[in-house]
Design a protein around this nucleic acid. Structure first.
Lengths: 179, 179
DNA sequence: TATTGTTATACTCTATAACTATA
DNA sequence: TATAGTTATAGAGTATAACAATA
């Protein structure tokens, strides 16, 4: 409730300098990762986009003509969750659901021009977020971190672009800091 | 729903090799961090401990004679949440709440011998978890990753030992893989 | 009969705020 | 009157499973 808006805060309440027991790497990873995810969600808030919706837009842009089943799979979310995600995106004119002629059960998902525009904004936000989160690192360190994390993601079979958190909701009632 | 039990899975469904657009470092960080947190929660399940409870035990062990208000602060959780966390721990004889003589409003928290024993188990689990999560890295890389993450945690003022996820619940209905 | 998408129900969880007791 | 802890309530969000339509 104090430095909620600060990016690289200068006044932590309780520094970890004096910590006799150093935190485990896995804990730090989870801690920093979750913090970053929260900050990212806040950056997304002005666009009225959930992290999972941002992921959906990226997925749709990449793998053209996905149907909802496939999207759910790649997002690691249940189909009914994808429905509510897409209901919103479609209503706001960012995504279209088109019944396929071959198989009229399945919806081909595609971005509208507005959707593409939002995706572009999204990319900018991602870049800003990355830069802010890693600002204290040297270029070499950034590179090294990226390499290591890629290796870990691959080693653990984490599907490309699918956040475990996409399944969850993530939205504090009072996160209107940026808006 | 496929490689849920595998640690360093050998058969990812969708490798990230061919990914034309490399993931941002922040995304990878969140992705790997969340995955690790999930796995850790699973390791905790047999002990019937929530991640936040594990954090509470560690906090109580470290800062002796905390009261609930202080614990809530360090855990970045709301006081009422701490109550339910502790209700369980106390009922199971891992933690004691002792009314202070100086200020009878405040409860001095302490670990029982059973609580100490669980804490020891916890440390073992943490070590195992760390080793498993980082098994594909060289010693140099592990060191490098730890250093970088520590720097990031400090730069962003993340309080030592407090997970942003401690506020949330985290417990899928069907996570009885390990048990 | 199997599969895609949708809806609806039931459930879990969390925070807010009222409440009690101490100070 | 202010603070520590507790309780209760209300609100948000998810998954499960039933459903409708296609195949």
């Amino acid at each position: 409730m104090d430095n909620k808006g600060g990016e690289a805060a200068a006044a932590p309440k309780r520094t970890r300098k004096s910590s006799a027991t150093p935190q485990s790497t896995a804990f730090l990873l989870a801690q920093v990762g979750a913090h970053g995810a929260d900050r990212f969600a806040q950056r997304l808030a002005p666009l009225r986009l959930l992290p999972a919706q941002a992921g959906a837009l990226r997925m749709i842009a990449k793998g053209a003509d996905l149907n909802q089943r496939q999207l759910a799979e790649r997002l690691q979310a249940v189909p009914s969750r994808v429905v509510s995600l897409l209901d919103d995106l479609e209503q706001r004119g960012l995504v279209t659901r088109a019944r396929r002629s071959e198989d009229r059960r399945s919806h081909a998902l595609a971005l509208t021009p507005s959707g593409e525009a939002v995706l572009t904004q999204l990319r900018g936000i991602s870049r800003d977020h990355d830069a802010a989160l890693l600002s204290v690192l040297s270029e070499t360190e950034k590179q090294s971190l990226h390499d290591i994390l890629s290796r870990l993601a691959e080693a653990h079979g984490l599907p490309d672009g699918a956040h475990p958190g996409f399944g969850r909701r993530r939205a504090s009632p009072h996160e209107t800091d940026c808006a």
